[in-house]
């Protein structure tokens, strides 16, 4: 009986996974990533800017819709202290390259990795994080659809008021 209890406890520990999402108001982990030309880029380098950090992959269908939207955001708010950082999570870089040829990006593309995804506690792709000028997470959006476009724009505009 004692052995069975022990076995049950061990199995419980093995199967239980901690799922804590990065909460709004928390400081976004400062990590250094490689951009598409393998130049190191630190998230802290963008301090003072409103960031839209988007995790994407070539196989993610909604990402095809989010790229034109992010191009629009970058074009509209880029000069006001806003930056889109799109972090690619493809396992094979050539898949991402094919995607980028089809869906060109006018914003910064970074190469992601598993540690980064764990640090941000991704629950799916695409997933976007809106970060304020002080590096604090202000909003997160899991998935991408037409309905949350307005919400994203309002959140960004609200944060950019401080830059005017």
């Amino acid at each position: 009986m004692k052995n069975i209890r022990l076995l049950m406890a061990v199995l419980f520990c093995l199967t239980t996974q901690q799922v804590n999402a990065l909460d709004n108001g928390e400081i976004v982990p400062n990590l250094t990533l490689l951009d598409w030309n393998n130049t190191p880029v630190a998230i802290a380098d963008y301090k003072g800017k409103v960031l839209y950090i988007d995790f994407w992959a070539s196989w993610c269908i909604p990402c095809k819709k989010s790229f034109p939207f992010m191009n629009d955001l970058q074009a509209k708010y880029g000069k006001q202290g806003f930056q889109v950082l799109a972090i690619n999570m493809d396992e094979e870089k050539q898949d991402a390259e094919k995607f980028l040829k089809k869906y060109p990006a006018d914003f910064t593309i970074l190469q992601g990795n598993s540690d980064l995804a764990k640090a941000f506690k991704l629950t799916g792709l695409p997933m976007a994080f809106i970060v304020n000028q002080n590096g604090k997470l202000m909003a997160k959006h899991s998935g991408f659809n037409q309905n949350n476009k307005k919400k994203v724009i309002l959140q960004i505009e609200h944060l950019l008021v401080g830059n005017r």
């Binding site: 199995l11 093995l14 396992e91 995804a117 629950t123």
Partner: peptide
């Protein structure tokens, strides 16, 4: 034997993370 069996079990509970599904597609 118990430890060996548990070792095998631990291999079965590793989950595929949401960002690791590229090859499945």
């Amino acid at each position: 034997l118990l430890v060996v069996c548990l070792g095998f079990l631990s291999g079965c509970v590793s989950t595929v993370e949401p960002w690791e599904r590229g090859r499945f597609t």
